[in-house]
Amino acid sequence: MESQEERDTNKKMWIVTPGEKVPKRPRYGEANSGETYFVKTPIGYVATHLGVIKKTGRGLDLIPYKNVYTPRRGDYVVGVVTAYAPNGWIVDIGASTKAFLAAQELIRRQGGERRFDPKTYDLTQQFSIGDLIGAVIYDINAQSHAILSLNPEKTTVSPRHIGKLNGYFVIKVHTTKIPRIIGKKGSMIKMIKENIDGDIVIGQNGVILFKGDYEKYLLLKKIINTIISRTFAPGLTGKIASMLGTTLENGENDTS
């Protein structure tokens, strides 16, 4: 056991399964925007997920193989309306907890001044069950429910991606793959957007939306599948770049 630990301490990255002890480092669980993949047990810190541990200057980061999406304040998410509440809608964002969108949010977005009145306001007129909506997580309440907002104050999301979303192709991926699809400082997604014409929306909860030609959608899907299948492989951006280049060239040749 100790020899394994010693071996691990000398490595830059290695694979762990749940329950495997990891050598102690400062700033545990600081990786992945506060999401923690370690738990303290009587034998020390152990990994809770299957994944790859990466040694960084800050300590240990665990890149999980799969993870259940935990809503975080400020995340842009895409969800499906699943039920009506007395004063809003229940939205399924594929997370560990349910999400709620208050009707007052929609009134504010539509520029209304009045307060929500359940007697006169018809919730079914605005969103139906099964509607796709984009929203930003405004708060996590005491019951750990995500409270959604349609009027985010500080966000980089385009206003047209907030509210009801129509006419998009939907690609669902695991939330752990989203950082890889976005890339370091957005390098990967920037490259994809530059090479594929269309509207690409990425929800932090693992929903990718695309509006554009069907052929471009298929290309995007192929690229995303490549990223997913090679999540832990080094030099992925280069591979995708060459793939985008060659595929686009082929496509141009076909059309010409």
Binding site: N10, K12, W14, G51, R230, F232, A233
Partner: peptide
């Protein structure tokens, strides 16, 4: 994980980042 990467589970410490 090995299927989607080149990381060996029992490495010699020379893995690439």
């Amino acid at each position: 994980i090995e299927k989607m990467s080149e990381i060996p589970s029992e490495g010699d410490g020379n893995e690439q980042g």
